[in-house]
Design a protein around this nucleic acid. Sequence first.
RNA 1: GGCGCUAUGGUGUAAUUGGUUAACACGCUGCCCUCUCAAGGCAGAGAGUACGGGUUCGAUCCCCGUUAGCGCUACCA
Length: 516
Amino acid sequence: MIRVRFAPSPTGYLHIGAARTALFNWLYARKTGGAFLLRIEDTDLQRSTDESTRSIIEGLRWLGLDYDEELIFQSANADKHRAAALQLVEAGKAYRDFTPKAERADANVKQEIAERARAASATGTDHRSNPFRDLSPEESAARAAAGEPFAVRLKVAREGRSSFADAVYGAQERDYTEIEDLVLLRSDGHPLYNLSVVCDDIEMRITDVIRGQDHLTNTHKQILIYEALGAPIPRFAHLPLILAPGGKKLSKRIHGEIVSLTTYRDRGFLPAAFCNFLALLGWSPAREERAAAEATDANAEAQADEHASELMSLEEIVRNFSLERIHRNPAIFNFDANNPKRWTDDKAIWMNAEYIRTLPLADLLPLVRAELEAAGLWRAEFDGERREWFARTVDLIRERFYTLKDFSGQGRAYFADEFEFDEAAVKKNLQKEPRLRELLPALATRIEQTEPFTTETCEAALRAYADEAGVKAGLFINAARTALTGQSVGPSMFEVFYLVGRERSARRLREAVRFL
RNA sequence: GGCGCUAUGGUGUAAUUGGUUAACACGCUGCCCUCUCAAGGCAGAGAGUACGGGUUCGAUCCCCGUUAGCGCUACCA
């Protein structure tokens, strides 16, 4: 049985790249009928916070990625990791390194690495030059017993190569000379990442490790640890990285909240839409040739069309998912920090709008309710006597919305009486025509007296009065739109009259005179 | 510095695994519809597949090199 895991370190918000890794693991588990486990890699005590653990769990819940079995905290297993390292020392597969720990600043490690590499090649030393590597077991044990601090390093063979078949990147090889005797245990006894992941993955009986491509080269080291521990090696599948525009690294420091999953929740994304978008970043469904092959009847053709669509429910994605169709090239997450309309990837926004517009109304209603509640616009009657009205209103306005936020933003005038007037709209639709000062109150009266009050009768009343007053109906329509909603754009005006209601419509028409 | 990964319009991807006028979606432009804005419909612009060599009758696809980006190379994860 397939067992996969998502193993984030709780050192900040849930990054969209990590969310995508979680999604792919989940998809694979659900596709194969396996288990999807969650493990929090909190071995870096300084940087790990409970808050980010909570945000990770919340983020997964929001996306709808439920995990099986119980949550594992890596820090709880530190003793086991330590024991494993010591056991490797006993077995002669690792050794104690008594070299005093070198202090280094996190900021310029990369530079230091390069410099040290240059220095090493100049002096002819290599990864295996550590004098403690070949210390006799007796002397090593004696020094340790005397209380001398030591780190534990894996003893990597001098010759040979490591190889594995990555499910995405194919055959991977690395010469042992490229792999240092990596530290398993710090001199303060703290187990390090590579050891911890391997030990935990063994204990959790993980069969397939699906993670970011940034771990591709380190996989060889981990395989060495599996081998030293005598454990079966899982299958690996590395996912292409998600990059910022220009092919640059996507980071919080330079790109801000755009990389945080919670941003999408907070800015009105539907989880299903975001999953759909994320799934297409680094993966694509197989073309349905079978549908084309039997496309003799119209039915099959329609089905083929449907399969060609990139809009897929989570269930459909699960059905189509396979490791084989994961891409190797990094995906660029496109956005423009300087353009509010393009604050995130165009396609993500389009997809969210598409979901808002096409979701069964009954599924959308609770989401809109939550948004209105958060904005303080929710009224009990929307779920009581005005239930029908609420559904019809949401159904009407959702057509041109992009995010859930729009329901409390642009849609505010439908749910509340206090709303903002767009300055440009006021100028264009109200102030351009001074005669509206007299016409608007009169129109209000006509609307008020319309009986019965329907979209059709409102339209008839408005057009009739426009004729009488000798103005174009468009003048009234546009003025009314701004008077009733504060905006210059929106749904068909007669629907708006009907939904805003007789009384409120008339009042708003009269009050609009204050702009003139 | 060393090692690795990647390279198809602006972006995400497709191309029966070597044979297509290089396809689709988003975005963009124009037109239609229209009370506005969307949606929808129609029509377009935009890549000869990073560059240079090979192999082949034939390369987006296979090989080599270059370039660029990214990753790894920590007693970080």
